[in-house]
Design a protein around this nucleic acid. Sequence first.
DNA 1: ACCTGAACACCGTTCAAGT
DNA 2: ACCTGAACACCGTTCAAGT
Lengths: 224, 224
Amino acid sequence: MARPRKPLLSRDRIVEAASTLVDSEGLEAVSTRRLAAELGVSGPSLYNHFRNKDEILDAVADSVSAQVDLSMFDEDDGRDWRAALHDWAVSYRAALAAHPHIVPVLAQGPGRRPAGLRVADAAFGGMVRAGWPPTQATYIGALMRYFVTGSALGSFARGFVDDETAYDPADYPHLGQAHLLADRRQKVDEGAFETGLRAILDGLALQYEQRTPAATVRPSPKRS
Amino acid sequence: MARPRKPLLSRDRIVEAASTLVDSEGLEAVSTRRLAAELGVSGPSLYNHFRNKDEILDAVADSVSAQVDLSMFDEDDGRDWRAALHDWAVSYRAALAAHPHIVPVLAQGPGRRPAGLRVADAAFGGMVRAGWPPTQATYIGALMRYFVTGSALGSFARGFVDDETAYDPADYPHLGQAHLLADRRQKVDEGAFETGLRAILDGLALQYEQRTPAATVRPSPKRS
DNA sequence: ACCTGAACACCGTTCAAGT
DNA sequence: ACCTGAACACCGTTCAAGT
């Protein structure tokens, strides 16, 4: 056929097909040839739209970042910084959990992914407006990302073998067999996320009270 | 040559060579053929010692977990749970930071990696002995792992392009150009880790005070 | 500009054959 | 038991050729 009058491909179509493939069969199922076949074209066609395979995967990862709700950081949103951070973390984690196979790509720093940077930017802006010093605001955005991506990636619920005999209790004196069951593992992930999120927010609240009252942008929430 | 009287390979030698290769040239440089060449054997030889390439990488990851200091959870260590958790997190992160290229493998849950499970087991045991209820102790081990692996993996210091013009300020109104410079990024990682760790420990301390004083592991955990 | 087939330099893994 | 070369079924990417 060679070149058709209407392009067969577009970046969006490629990203969409790649996302579907990643979600249904995992990262390793994505080869340029397989992906091209899924799109009804030959492998090298993709190189008219992306420089290489990594850029395609980056774009897939970024499309997940784009689904993270950032409205809690809007100027006219009523919530205080703590509630905003909480809601953000929950939305962030939900977005990643919906596409677990791409998380390893997404977790590797915001790098050159626009939506990933937008997430960092929004959180930073929200914290500064709430009265956090810029340096601290940067740290908060980063540490929340560490925690959320870490929890989405390093889930207890994944990577275990569902064969209790694979884990000798003598090797792990404290870790009961119960911890290694599938049901239990998912509860561990949820509990650990909630516990960790609460601890982070409580701990940040202490730091907020003690912060050097340098930059306040609005009336000032002060301590209650 | 075929089979020599003394085996040319061993699991340890393979893991060592793979680690060196991962550290020096990154994950993608590790192919079974390249690794075998580095060891002076042919590719398929590796399959006498490992079932597949993934098992080799798991072993490399586990050798990093094995370097995490766990002595702070020893029965006769004087530190309280908070100090133990702090020192553990710092040692944990240092171990990962020393081998950044294998972190994506390591971060994917403790799975079937013995040393990874031993890390989880030790932390759990230490928290229970300090008076945390078992459920909370499990959560703490998991959430700390999320945070530490997330910070080692998702570092701001990696994945950025060192070309300021690549990031249009109009796209990220709050994120100044300064954030995107290499020096700055490393400081962000350190600051974010310290700030996050402190927040987690402070927050957990609040939860510790309010915990249901149900289980203290010795003399007898039974409440009834 | 955008797609193609052919080609290059690789992969992971299996397997029969050697000792 | 442990290594080999050959082979299979793949890879990512380049490139000249087609429209």
